[in-house]
């Protein structure tokens, strides 16, 4: 199932690239766009294969734990 999801999400990313292809005229825009797609792909792999280990909620909780009793009730 995970591998099917990986292929499905990768196809979505390819679709995003095809959609924006004609708007990517400048070299800098192209670089940034591919960097963003790369980040998306990495996040997708983490989401599918390291679901609980790299959970963003866990990371945020770890970072802001000391502040929660003071600011967030």
């Amino acid at each position: 199932m995970k591998w099917i999801s990986l292929i499905g999400y990768s196809l979505v990313l390819y679709g995003i690239y095809l959609f924006e292809k004609k708007n990517l005229q400048k070299t800098h825009d192209k670089k940034v766009f591919f960097m963003l797609l790369g980040i998306c792909w990495c996040v997708m792999v983490s989401f599918l294969f390291f679901h609980s280990l790299l959970n963003p909620a866990r990371i945020m909780l770890f970072l802001f734990k000391p502040l929660i009793p003071i600011l967030g009730k």
């Binding site: 825009d29 940034v32 797609l37």
Partner: peptide
């Protein structure tokens, strides 16, 4: 340009 990738994220 980054609306779609960020929405996917």
């Amino acid at each position: 340009l980054n609306a779609l990738p960020i929405s996917f994220l």
